[in-house]
Design a binder for these strands. Structure first.
Lengths: 202, 202
DNA sequence: CCTACCGATCGGTAGG
DNA sequence: CCTACCGATCGGTAGG
């Protein structure tokens, strides 16, 4: 029941920064989830005593908020670039899938926290996160609607449900994709984009 | 920060059963997740004092285990029947999607707990759950492999990745599907099965 | 950045 | 099923 806490960092390894605290928090939250990680676990990981964390951060929830916001922003940036080109809807969807897996392979732990643990934020802090998630969803909605409009994609009975299914597929890949697995991020992205596109092309 | 606890049940509404405790726990875990729900919350919901819960249950984790195991079993039963017929692989995949959404629409909260909160079980109790999840996955793997073997589906570069994507799509639907939404469970299942099948058919 | 500590809350139990 | 309570742990702070 009691978690064995890791050893303290060796002293003299330099002063601790808020950035380092976030990095260790990402690792711990991704491994065990936010509510079961204590400030004492984070303190152990960076080699401070619990109270000393508050020199660098303002509170536990604030650490989570920063991790989540930056984590989603990584996806908005990468997929935003992919969705912005003047290529066909098919090529933009392919590029969006590739961008998604590229970010996932670069930040797998932060992705787990950002996609699945933002729900632990108090209502007051959720607003911006929900808006960011909406923008992320809209990037895909726009591509699919575009393709349907130009006739590149077939008339879907419910474009929204289809997009939610695609996004769910991508989000859930966080649970099984390993950056150092048999297939590279690009290979997995291409495989899934191929199936998704065949599924909706006219 | 502090959760306002619900009121106690009116006394005299009959004795409490383990079944009722599980039902309230499903509701609360689905709403807020296992670690942030206290035994005091569950006690309030069923109208007992915290200590009295232990007349009916042996511990918090045991309640979670039962919810998770029954929750997954619902899917194994329904999808197992769908996957067992002598129809084509396409029809069996369609039936499996329909069965999935039928169970989801019947037990949305238990699904949320079973699919996403089994990770809070201690390693000792995870074994059976992981085995059940594997059987669930294999039901889909078998259908897809079958279809590829008979030439009904195209040669996939990675059948496993494709199946994981389909399952991820279904699992993630737990987050957006509403039983009383615009589309029925069967309509959503058909829409997604259509796209998935077009994606992999030869 | 540490020492020392706060009030609150946790899952669970003894004894009736 | 309640009364009364246990030891452990939680996020966070005062004062240096």
């Amino acid at each position: 029941m009691a978690t064995t806490r890791g050893e303290r960092r060796t002293r003299g390894a330099g002063p601790v920064s808020a950035e380092q605290i976030e990095q260790e928090a990402i690792r711990l939250f991704a491994e065990k989830t936010y509510p079961v990680i204590g400030m004492r676990d984070i303190a152990d990981a960076v080699g401070l005593l619990p109270g000393s964390l508050y020199v660098h951060i303002s509170g536990k929830e604030d650490v989570l908020l920063r991790i989540v916001e930056k984590g989603i922003q990584n996806y908005l940036d990468a997929i935003g670039r992919a969705a912005d080109s003047h290529e066909s809807a098919s090529d933009r969807l392919r590029a969006a899938f590739a961008a998604h897996f590229e970010v996932l392979s670069r930040t797998p732990e932060q992705t787990r926290v950002a996609f699945f643990q933002w729900t632990y934020l108090s209502p007051a802090k959720r607003g911006r996160v929900i808006a960011m998630r909406q923008r992320y969803e809209d990037l895909f909605v726009d591509i699919v609607r575009d393709g349907v409009r130009t006739g590149e994609f077939r008339q879907l009975r419910s474009p929204r449900v289809t997009v939610l299914a695609f996004i769910g597929m991508l989000n859930n890949a966080t649970e099984w994709f390993h950056p150092d697995g048999e297939l590279t991020a690009l290979e997995v992205a291409n495989e899934l984009a191929e199936t998704a596109l065949r599924g909706i092309q006219a």
